[in-house]
């Protein structure tokens, strides 16, 4: 249906031919990339399972056992005799660990994040300080919470306090890095405007940077609290307090029903926290309407 006009010049025709070649080459490249990526991934898994694999016998036995565990998860026995008080206390302790650890980490990470921000630390000496602090953050967050837990058990003994310290250290690293990144990502103009007004350094950072990165700060903190609630359970496995202990005990005793119950409670709890943090985010990040001046109907009744 398409009629080529015969008036195409030679140069145009050769240009078009080059273009066809490029199109076909791009399609060939796409195929080659797709196939080779697929093959690489396939071979990776084949090698992974070949070197670390289980014998078929182990595999079948294992699957059989897994089936039993899952079956037991759904059949709850002797529910009336479960020590619910103990479970809920441990859940509360976990929450306590999370809040205490994350809040304390926030308190330390916020000032440190300014020291780690490239934007704030803009002279040579200050920049080298910021590099040191960023490396410190890397070390703090590079080591898993459970390992920090084990280390702090040596320092403050078994119990939830070691857990708080573990969360505190890891989150200081993580939040510090993320806060610093959000300070660096803010718009430069307000800071410039403020220095034009004659604001000193601290005022400039408070109003020029932190006002803008505050929503990020709040969102990151809220998200971290939520995510820590989920990951804090591992602390109990190493003796750093909280719900992980209940998991470990009941798995050893084959009480898979209890494991299921605790997990469901935690799912619910995390969902609630998710809703709460969504409300907070709506209120403080998107911002509430402030009634305009001269529209008395809207604000007189407040």
């Amino acid at each position: 249906m398409i009629n080529h006009s015969n008036t195409i010049s030679t140069s145009e025709r050769s240009n078009n031919e080059r273009q066809y070649a490029a199109i076909y080459a791009s399609r060939r490249r796409h195929m080659v990339i797709t196939f080779s990526l697929g093959l690489i991934i396939l071979f990776y898994y084949i090698f992974f399972f070949y070197f670390n694999g289980l014998t078929p016998e182990q595999m079948f036995q294992g699957l059989d056992k897994l089936g039993q565990y899952f079956a037991r998860m759904f059949i709850w026995r002797n529910v009336s005799q479960w020590p619910f008080g103990y479970y809920f206390t441990q859940i509360a302790v976990t929450l306590g660990i999370v809040f205490a650890g994350t809040f304390t980490a926030t308190l330390l990470a916020l000032p440190l994040s300014f020291l780690a921000s490239r934007r704030v630390m803009n002279t040579f000496v200050l920049a080298s300080i910021s590099v040191v602090i960023r490396r410190l953050f890397d070390i703090m967050r590079g080591i898993d919470m459970a390992i920090w837990g084990m280390i702090f058990i040596r320092a403050v003994g078994m119990g939830p306090l070691a857990g708080v310290m573990a969360i505190f250290i890891q989150d200081t690293g993580l939040l510090g890095k993320l806060y610093a990144e959000s300070h660096d990502a803010v718009d430069k103009r307000p800071s410039r405007g403020l220095s034009a007004l004659g604001a000193n350094h601290l005022q400039k950072h408070r109003f020029g940077i932190f006002t803008q990165s505050f929503p990020q700060f709040l969102a990151l903190t809220l998200y971290q609290i939520e995510s820590n609630t989920r990951s804090a359970a591992v602390l109990g496995f190493v003796g750093a307090g909280g719900i992980g202990l209940v998991y470990a005990e009941n798995m050893r005793l084959w009480n898979w029903d209890v494991v299921m119950f605790i997990t469901l409670v935690l799912v619910l709890l995390v969902m609630l926290m998710d809703k709460a943090s969504e409300l907070l985010r709506k209120k403080y990040i998107i911002g509430e309407d402030i009634p305009l001046f001269n529209q008395p109907t809207q604000h007189t009744e407040k």
Partner: peptide, 27 residues
Amino acid sequence: LFKFFPKKDVERAIELLEWTGLINHAL
């Protein structure tokens, strides 16, 4: 799924792009 269209479709697509004058923007 893998974006492997038959050759005759590609040829037709090229024809159509030429007709619309967008052959240079094909990629």
